[in-house]
Design a protein around this nucleic acid. Sequence first.
DNA 1: TTTCCTAGTTATCAGTTGATGACAAGAAAG
DNA 2: CTTTCTTGTCATCAACTGATAACTAGGAAA
Lengths: 204, 204
Amino acid sequence: MARTRLTATERSEQLLAAAVKAFAEKGYAGTTTDDVARIAGVSQPYVVRLFGGKQRLFIAAVEHVTAQIEQRFREAAAVRPNLGSLADAYNKMLAERDMLVVLLHGFAVGPDSEIGPVARRCFGRIYHVVREITGASAEEVCQFMASGMLLTVLATMRVVGPDAVPAEPWVVELLSGLTKPLPASLEDLTCAPSGTSPTAEPHR
Amino acid sequence: MARTRLTATERSEQLLAAAVKAFAEKGYAGTTTDDVARIAGVSQPYVVRLFGGKQRLFIAAVEHVTAQIEQRFREAAAVRPNLGSLADAYNKMLAERDMLVVLLHGFAVGPDSEIGPVARRCFGRIYHVVREITGASAEEVCQFMASGMLLTVLATMRVVGPDAVPAEPWVVELLSGLTKPLPASLEDLTCAPSGTSPTAEPHR
DNA sequence: TTTCCTAGTTATCAGTTGATGACAAGAAAG
DNA sequence: CTTTCTTGTCATCAACTGATAACTAGGAAA
């Protein structure tokens, strides 16, 4: 019965990954701490105790994915520091979906006293990174962010990305209109490398 | 105590307006049927009965705002059938915020069995209207939708639109990068005509 | 082996929330 | 005036959910 014990830090990291998965699926309000606990294979009260509450867990998840996205962009820029390179990195993230979707859910929580400021800061951070890394003009960066937001929303709707619903005509047409920075093919956006799933038995 | 009685149809319309307001504030899962009831000044069970459940109410709200947006676009196109005209209409909606934000929340609910298909259909409908009304190219329409999505997310975050938080530097910079179809000024996006608020006493 | 810290669980709860059913009260018709 | 239909409320639940407190157990040090 007893799983291998982990240090609190290790377990927190694992829970963070579980939280990203859960929140990506159902958003902030729609996800229960028990969902997260089940994915990670620990008890629900432990999740609450390790992070000090659901809200803090969500904030941690949003900041986590923001840091991940930032890192991906920096890595991409290390190769070629232009928007095209970032677009490639973005497409990869889109194929993994969860990071971007969690971020969008963070944005969508809106003016909630605690979460709102965090979400706004995360958006600003990502904008800043893109702007600084590539020497691109304000217009180019804005267009990049806009296309990215469109695609992120489509990913949230399961119109693109892994397990996407069958593409309707308007999807194909819309995506065909994507210009310069993000000319992703529909195929790239629909298939994805699959990960493992540490499912566990129920607890509660 | 007794309010003026309305026909079921009238009351439903009023409830729909209340639902839009409520869902725009807190999203689908975060909003209670009681929130909606309080805004409209009726009892919570009545809301449930008139619409047959929270999910149906949300779906009705999403379809309602979609129809509204479509209508605004058509009206704008009746004057000048080009993207610039639609952009003006879009900016006005952005200043009112709720319609667009509810729609985004609809998109964000994701793959939920009932709501997902509705959200996807609504997105497709709006895309289709924009494409058909203006004779614009796929690229232009895509760029319009992308910019619109970016602004809608910013509105959801309360970065633009009514009651927006004080604009940080990156917001100004990002918005300055907006091109052709939607060159809205920050002032346009931050102020809005205010509406009435039919608050009522608590019930539950 | 005993001690003791930390990882983790079980039991439990209080508040919330969507939903149901029985009932009240206008208003229109007979 | 009474009947009857529709609008709307009240009382009430059962399920859920985040959180707390008390307890268990692994494992390293003494």
